[in-house]
Design a protein around this nucleic acid. Structure first.
Lengths: 221, 221
DNA sequence: AACTGTGAAACCTTTCACAGCT
DNA sequence: AGCTGTGAAAGGTTTCACAGTT
């Protein structure tokens, strides 16, 4: 079995969703460690840096294969490569962002994307007044140009008001996008073969409100 | 047992975290339905509007008490009241946002907060050039004013660059805030009695990248 | 007849605790 | 001695399927 075949076999192993959701966390912590010059790290220390517990971290990493050394720990650079590869961040992937309001600008300037092979390639907006504007090194284009900027494997990001989100979503699907991230606070309909995820900025705040509310009930004045 | 006592007993029942995380979703769907003039809705239809399955919805709502009518469905207005109350959104709660960059501005203007009793009360930034600026009806104040704007039960929101996040977090904790929502891509340390949640704008994108990557492996050209 | 509320089963995730390697 | 990798146990979540109510 060649190295390539081993890698292929590993890729076929199913990785639990909960683990996939934490890989970006580990990756960020590892990048910070690498920047600080750390070359080897124990599960305990990496778990602390990522804000999880060490047993969970070890189990998560075990799904990618065994990259640690017993008695020593993990090689930081090697782990970065493995996780980046697993997440599909090694071959740079195309991201198309629609909606250049405050949120869209925040996303375009968000360092977390660029440093992870997820740089945004195109900014689109329906407002003609915005086309031509330069943001984070990109020129805003009109939404009508969507078919021209989408390539196979592109990920679409919706940062429009809720009222425009389904329309934009349909345009993305029509242009061949099969992975969409929705920041608009609305439920979108997509064909079964399209992978749709959402981020609702207000949900976490409402969850905090719930817990804060509970505190005031448990500890009455 | 009086109505108040029943309500108190219900409040003491533990609601699973997974359920709490979905209540805001239901609430949003219900508000939309109410705006459309719908007064009664079945678990099936509400589940569809919220993007979940109906058995899950019914189980979730059963934790709040039995507010539905068999053979009929749920009363939209009543459910809105129950969920809002459960989430602590009925008594308007104070939100203090630190960091008035693009993300902070997006959050300040985000309709989802105001309409749910979670309007932002104060905007703060460390940059003196921004103090005095009007955003979404609020005047930006300097971060030094933090102790003046925090009240008991305030929720703090961090929308600063990662480099400033821990500092701001410490200031919030020092001012008495015990619920913090962090949008900066960094792990924060807080005392055990502080409830810290985070939103990482890039994580969902990386998860999508993972799945997109998988697709290309499963369906080779 | 229609639809909720809920035990029970199936599934997934986390944590424990230690065998096994360096 | 120190730390990873992992079965097994514990805990939590989702789904099923139907009894119970209107």
């Amino acid at each position: 079995m060649t190295t390539t075949e081993i890698a292929a076999a590993r890729r076929r192993e199913v990785i639990p969703e909960a683990t996939v959701a934490r890989l970006p966390l580990y990756l960020r912590a590892l990048h910070t460690l690498a920047d600080e010059g750390t070359s080897t790290i124990s599960s305990e220390a990496l778990a602390e840096a990522a804000g999880v517990n060490s047993a969970k971290l070890r189990k998560d990493l075990s799904h990618l294969g065994s990259y640690g050394t017993r008695g020593v720990g993990y090689d930081v650079a090697h782990l970065i490569t493995s996780i980046s590869h697993e997440l599909g961040l090694s071959r740079r992937c195309s991201v198309v962002l629609v909606g250049v309001g405050n949120l869209g600008r925040a996303l375009a300037g968000y360092g977390g994307f660029a440093s992870r092979g997820l740089a945004i390639d195109a900014l689109l907006d329906a407002d003609p007044a915005l086309t031509g504007e330069q943001i984070a090194g990109l020129t805003v284009r009109h939404i009508d140009d969507l078919p021209e900027v989408v390539v196979p494997g592109s990920i679409g990001v919706i940062a429009t008001p809720a009222s425009a989100a389904q329309l934009v979503c349909d345009l993305l699907v029509g242009a061949g996008v099969t992975s969409i991230l929705n920041f608009a606070p609305t439920v979108l309909s997509v064909p079964a073969d399209v992978d749709l995820r959402k981020v609702d900025l207000s949900i976490e705040l409402q969850i905090l409100s719930f817990h804060e509310h509970r505190k005031s009930l448990v500890t009455p004045a």
